[in-house]
């Protein structure tokens, strides 16, 4: 296949299909063993410096915040990230733990651009490659399929493609131009779900974003769950199970694990908290104060919950819409 154009962006994580197969063959445990552990244990055991990390979420919704805060507390550094999020990436960038970003969209939607992202990238501290939202998800999909690349008709003709590591080729079947996206195999995936069992069988309510793909594209997968339930309950509704246990390395019970973000059907977004954070994030000193108070201050997620206050969290529960 003739390569017609090559994106000039750096390929931060080379697709290693055989390496991924060997890894999961060797490491993924198919025995029914409880993987329940704390955030501290999960992050200490499965995240290391230099890892390529992926978080699954929709903006601030169903974001693995308790896991992210723990990654920062443990100071895992020189991380590579795929950015389709916001608050969790802002925190990791503010903690100066990130070297590279495969970025599709990092901003606060209607509230505007991220001051922390601006400081990190404009100063040259963090290297970037750009992708569309579809493209980065299809990169996970390719990894989930166990193949080295996937064709798409997105990104063609644009600087987005030029600053990614996609390639344009002539389709051997139709002769048309297609963009090839390299599979994105993650060292570690972090996902927050509505419920799971102690083995790691997990269910998500509502839209599923890119949970299905990211879970399958991860060498090591840490899930946190609002609720831990019996396997028998999970098995009553297998059609709701999006992650089977054999994909999972650690299960963390994290009620309000997406706070200050939303968890659909469970609790609404904490607008007050986020508005304060957004204001603080404009200033380096105030950003540090926020980090000290909400990330480094609490020893663990239980501490964080106490700090935020159960009354406040109950109020967010009462604000979430029903079906």
């Amino acid at each position: 296949m003739e390569v017609l154009e090559s994106g000039l962006g750096e390929l931060f994580q080379k697709p290693d299909v055989w390496g991924f197969r060997e890894w999961v063959h060797k490491h993924k445990d198919k025995t029914l063993t409880s993987k329940l552990m704390t955030e501290q244990e999960a992050v200490a055991k499965f995240v290391k410096d230099g890892d390529y990390l992926g978080t699954e979420l929709y903006g601030t919704v169903r974001a693995p915040m308790s896991l992210t805060r723990e990654v920062i507390r443990q100071g895992k550094k020189h991380l590579k990230l795929a950015g389709q999020g916001i608050h969790e990436i802002d925190l990791l960038l503010a903690a100066d733990l990130v070297d590279t970003l495969d970025i599709t969209y990092i901003a606060w939607e209607v509230y505007g651009i991220s001051s922390i992202l601006r400081r990190a990238v404009e100063s040259g501290r963090v290297k970037t490659a750009d992708w569309s939202n579809g493209a980065i998800t299809w990169r996970f999909k390719a990894a989930a399929m166990g193949i080295p690349f996937i064709p798409t008709l997105s990104m063609l003709g644009t600087d987005t493609l030029k600053n990614s590591s996609a390639k344009v080729v002539k389709c051997p079947f139709t002769g048309q131009k297609v963009a090839l996206l390299p599979a994105l195999f993650l060292d570690v995936g972090l996902i927050h779900v509505h419920r799971g069992d102690k083995y790691g069988n997990c269910q998500i309510d509502g839209i599923s974003g890119f949970a299905f793909e990211l879970a399958r594209a991860s060498k090591k997968l840490i899930v946190s769950a609002e609720e831990i339930i019996d396997t028998e309950e999970i098995k009553k509704y297998p059609e709701h199970t999006i992650i089977p246990f054999f994909l999972v390395d650690a299960v963390v019970h994290a009620p309000y694990g997406s706070h200050p973000g939303e968890m659909c059907y469970n609790y609404w977004r904490d607008e007050g908290h986020l508005m304060n954070f957004l204001e603080d994030s404009k200033d380096i000193v105030k950003t540090k104060a926020y980090m000290d108070k909400y990330v480094y201050g609490p020893k663990n997620h239980d501490d964080y919950i106490k700090l935020v206050g159960i009354d406040r969290l109950k109020k967010l529960e009462s604000m979430i819409g029903g079906r």
Partner: peptide
Amino acid sequence: TTVIGKYWPPKVRLPGSGGANDVASH
């Protein structure tokens, strides 16, 4: 919606494509 100035390091880093590139492509 990506940068003002050169690509990297940019004068202003904007959010990036998000879904816009996909939407306008398809």
